[in-house]
Amino acid sequence: MVKKVFITRNIDEEVIQTLATHFQVEVWHSEHHACPREELMKQAADSHALLTMLSDQVDQELLDHAPQLEIVANLAVGYDNIDVKAAAEKGITITNTPDVLTDTTADLAFSLLMASARRIVEAADYVKQGSWQSWSPYLLAGSDIHHKTIGIIGMGKIGEAVAKRARGFDMTILYHNRSRNHEAEQNLQALYRTLDELLQESDFVVCLAPLTEETKGMIGAEQFALMKETAYFINAGRGPVADEKALIHALQEKELAGAGLDVFEKEPIDSSHPLLSMKNVIAVPHIGSSSFETRKIMMELCADNITHVLTGNDPLTKVH
């Protein structure tokens, strides 16, 4: 019997063809729309492997309707879209794509920091709209980045990569993590702080924390109130870690200078969302790892994990 693999979004054709040499492959061919829940349930019913996106909910209901399922390969580092406990109880392997997207995501996080501080999007729109009529000393003046203090919430590998970039700007590096990262302290001169201390001292707060029961809503009204009025909040981790209503209030009350956001509580964010009408907010559609090179590597890793598991071998990047 040829085993079946269902891919929930159109991915690189070479990767699809590689899988198709060994397995029956079905693909939800769409660039812009997530696989409908009904279709995912239908395909999972006779699939041995699923290659999923963060937008796909792999929950108890789906797993109960997938008796042949052996592996779910998630095209992401995070896997909060998957009920890992339920999968473990059924002996289903869950894999992710760690490490290969570290630098690309760090590039995006630091790009949001720079674009927010220097008002790049606002300035580009100013020129395109024909508003640039003359030069003046404070025309779209922003904030310096060099020699400022960056506070990184979540000093994992992506956090370390962001810290490396910050060193190039001669920034003071603070971090908060659930456990001390002694390697970052030694190699990057990163200084550990409690969350409150980090918020109070930082000019740029970069949130890279994963979404867990402990981190959900951890940055709320009290935390934003601790930040400097000149500070910027950057979130390239998970949207629900920050309370969006509290962020909106902090921005409206000028408790913060601005924000750069790659992730949101609900994705995709509604076009009428208040954050999108604020000039001091840069919002991008969860593109942290979105480079051609990195996405191809992520897809290949998912395919390799699937091939390993369906041929009776150990996966390369098992979550549990």
Rank of each mutant, 00 (worst) to 15 (best):
Asp144Val: 04
Asp125Tyr: 13
Pro137Val: 01
Asp103Pro: 02
Ser111Trp: 10
Asp107Thr: 00
Ala123Pro: 04
Tyr138Ile: 13
His147Trp: 08
Gly130Thr: 12
Asn96Pro: 04
Leu113Trp: 10
Leu140Pro: 11
Ser116Gln: 09
Ser111Glu: 13
Arg118Ala: 05
Ala123Lys: 02
Ala124Cys: 14
Trp132His: 02
Asp99Gly: 02
Thr105Val: 14
Glu122Gly: 10
Gly142Lys: 03
Ser134Ile: 01
Val100Ile: 13
Tyr138Cys: 09
Arg118Lys: 15
Met114Glu: 04
Asp125Val: 05
Asp125Ile: 02
Asp125Arg: 15
Ser111Gln: 11
Ser134Leu: 12
Ala124Ser: 13
Ser136Pro: 01
Asp144Cys: 09
Thr102Glu: 05
Leu113Cys: 12
Trp135Arg: 01
Trp135Asp: 04
Asp99Gln: 01
Ser116Glu: 06
Ala106Thr: 04
His147Val: 00
Trp132Met: 04
Glu122His: 11
Asp103Thr: 00
Asn96Trp: 03
Ser143Lys: 12
Ser116Val: 10
Tyr138His: 14
Ser136Asn: 07
Val100Gln: 06
Gln133Cys: 01
Leu140Arg: 06
Leu101Trp: 07
Thr97Leu: 04
Ser116Asp: 09
Lys128Tyr: 03
Trp132Leu: 13
Val127Tyr: 06
Ser136Lys: 14
Val121Gly: 07
Asp125Trp: 11
Leu140Glu: 06
Lys128Gln: 15
Leu108Asp: 05
Ala115Thr: 03
Leu108Cys: 10
Ala141Glu: 09
Ala115Ile: 03
Ser134Trp: 08
Asn96Glu: 04
Thr97Glu: 05
Gln133Asn: 13
Gln129Thr: 11
Leu139Tyr: 09
Ser136Leu: 11
Gln133Ile: 05
Ile145Leu: 15
Ser131Tyr: 09
Ser143Ile: 10
Pro98Ile: 00
Leu108Asn: 10
Leu112Asn: 05
Leu140Asp: 01
Tyr126Phe: 15
Tyr126Val: 04
Thr97Val: 00
Ala106Glu: 05
